[in-house]
Design a binder for these strands. Structure first.
Length: 196
DNA sequence: ATAGCGATTGACT
DNA sequence: GTCAATCGCTATA
């Protein structure tokens, strides 16, 4: 069931390319020896330079420091005081970039995810950035986690990439001109919107 | 020291 | 469709 995990070389590339290539991969969260996992079906790319929507746009701060560090690490932040968002850092060390994981299709540990989310509805389990972190119990204690070596969080090769939908990013007020949201077309767990 | 503001979600009209 | 919840980060003083 397990396969090779993605290492830092995978992430050390142009962020939108990494984002697109992450579709179909298996995001794995280990808790107490149990695998919670899902196939990545929706992502967004955020770069530091020339991307006003990025947390790194105005430069390095304590919060976004991980985005400036090594590729292949987890960048986790709290949004709206409620929801944690999971990002995977990209680009070479020193260059800011990250991919926001917006939705996954649940595969392993679905019962546990439903307990974490207090829902019995499969469709609403992981179809949003705040939902999947709640289902996988991802919070800021995982900020900076090295995906290449972590026993708690990593990404596996997964299944081949399928038909990809490309649209503008959602939930932002600037940088909307970049079509840096990628999703598995037709997948029922994609959070919102439709590829144009 | 503190005001302003979200890379969202769920409940409600 | 609208809207409130809630808190840490950031900028400004």
């Amino acid at each position: 069931m397990s396969s090779a995990r993605l290492g830092h070389r995978f992430f050390e590339r142009y962020t939108p390319d990494v984002a697109r290539d992450l579709l179909g991969r298996a995001l794995v969260r280990m808790i107490g020896g149990e695998r919670l996992s899902g196939e990545i079906v929706e992502v967004e790319a955020y770069r530091g330079d020339r991307d006003p929507a990025s947390h790194a746009y105005a430069g390095r701060t304590p919060r976004n420091a991980v985005m400036f560090g090594e590729p292949g690490h987890a960048y986790v932040y709290l949004a709206y005081g409620f929801h944690h968002c999971l990002n995977l850092t990209t680009e070479r060390s020193g260059a800011p970039g990250a991919v926001l994981v917006r939705a996954i299709e649940p595969v392993e540990g679905i019962r546990e995810m439903m307990r974490n989310r207090r829902t019995r509805t499969l469709e609403s389990l992981t179809n949003g950035p705040g939902k999947l972190t709640q289902a996988l119990r991802i919070d800021r204690t995982l900020n900076g986690e090295d995906l290449a070596t972590s026993p708690r969080l990593f990404v596996e090769t997964g299944s081949p990439v399928r038909v990809v939908g490309i649209t503008h990013r959602v939930g932002i007020r600037s940088g909307t001109r970049f079509n840096w949201r990628f999703s598995v077309e037709g997948n029922r767990f994609v959070s919102k919107g439709k590829p144009s």
